[in-house]
């Protein structure tokens, strides 16, 4: 422990002050990932919606993007499927067609590379609802009603798989508010908005980051998938002043354990959704997206130099 560098409070406060005094261009620039994520989330929904309602076609009789986030087909030949849904169906003891298995493998491979919970921050429509609740909650004096372990989601994940085998139908798919939201946006309205209102109120008034950060089994699934992801947030120990602004904006602040970050030089936890909030905000530019092998090489070189 004595080897740990000491951090001065004055440096940290100076960093926070620097953040407060940002000029407007810098402020706008720090919103870049929020804007990109919204473009990605709305863009994907728009492609589905346009194909379903306005008959968008890439060429004659080649629809752009059919289906929804559970299973889809891009340009009439490229299959994609939700690997968690396919896993549940598999556990019900039913044989699936190769097309959907290939689609699930493609999606799984993509998230293995870019980070599992990239789905959560960049694709999932429920993130729009929970981000709004989180944004409001940060500006309102709402105390926590109770604490829940963030590991509860892994229990929900296990329950979804066990119940799929017991009930004979994909247990989460039949109650998923995520499924309700994208289905009802793309294919017409039902009462799914009630479930989404419940999530909004739960996140806003009962538990901060309650749904995405504590309960959602799909997020838990992608959290497990993303443990070895290629794209990670690199941590630069030398410039960090421990001001803590990154953890204040992070929806999963436990992934920013600074002691751990100093050890490995990157945000290692699969629970990080690569949303980019911390990288865009960090006043000392200590957090940045990078590729895991490059980070590791850099980190090992630096650690070797210190020894």
């Amino acid at each position: 422990m004595s080897g740990m560098p000491q951090y001065s409070r004055a440096d940290a406060l100076a960093s926070i002050e620097k953040l407060r005094r940002r000029a407007w261009p810098a402020r706008f620039w720090s919103w870049r990932y929020i804007v990109l994520r919204r473009l990605s989330q709305f863009g994907i929904l728009l492609l589905f919606f346009g194909t379903a309602h306005w008959g968008w076609q890439a060429a004659k009789d080649v629809p752009v993007l059919t289906g929804n986030l559970s299973a889809s087909e891009f340009m009439g030949w490229f299959p994609m499927a939700d690997p968690f849904a396919v896993l549940q169906i598999f556990l019900t003891g039913h044989l699936l067609q190769p097309e959907v298995i290939l689609g699930a493998a493609i999606v799984l491979g993509f998230y293995l590379l870019v980070g599992g919970r990239v789905y959560c921050a960049w694709v999932c429509p429920v993130n729009l609802v929970t981000d709004l609740a989180g944004w409001l909650r940060q500006r309102l004096p709402i105390p926590a009603l109770f604490a829940l372990s963030r590991n509860l989601r892994y229990l929900v994940l296990a329950a979804a798989l066990v119940l799929s085998a017991i009930t004979g139908v994909a247990a989460f798919e039949w109650v998923s508010p995520i499924g309700m939201m994208h289905r009802e946006i793309i294919f017409g309205f039902g009462l799914g908005f009630l479930a989404l209102s419940a999530i909004f109120l739960f996140d806003l008034l009962i538990l901060k980051n309650g749904w995405c950060g504590h309960l959602c089994p799909l997020g838990a699934f992608y959290g497990v998938v993303g443990r070895t992801a290629l794209i990670r947030v690199r941590f630069d120990k030398a410039s960090c002043t421990h001001c803590g602004e990154c953890a204040r904006v992070c929806p999963e602040p436990q992934v920013l354990n600074l002691k751990k970050l100093e050890e490995v030089g990157l945000v290692a936890s699969g629970e990080c959704s690569n949303c980019g909030r911390c990288t865009a905000l960090c006043p000392e530019d200590s957090l940045n997206f990078d590729l895991r092998p490059l980070i590791r090489k850099h980190h090992e070189a630096r650690a070797g130099g210190q020894v």
Binding site: A52, T66, H94, R183, F187, A195
Partner: peptide, 27 residues
């Protein structure tokens, strides 16, 4: 059918007569 249907709605997209609908929540 209930076990295997992944609720993606691609059959609904493909139907040229808008015959098929995807059931909403609470119906």
């Amino acid at each position: 059918f209930n076990a295997l249907c992944i609720k993606c709605g691609q059959c609904v997209n493909a139907c040229p007569y808008d015959t098929l609908k995807l059931a909403g929540a609470g119906g």
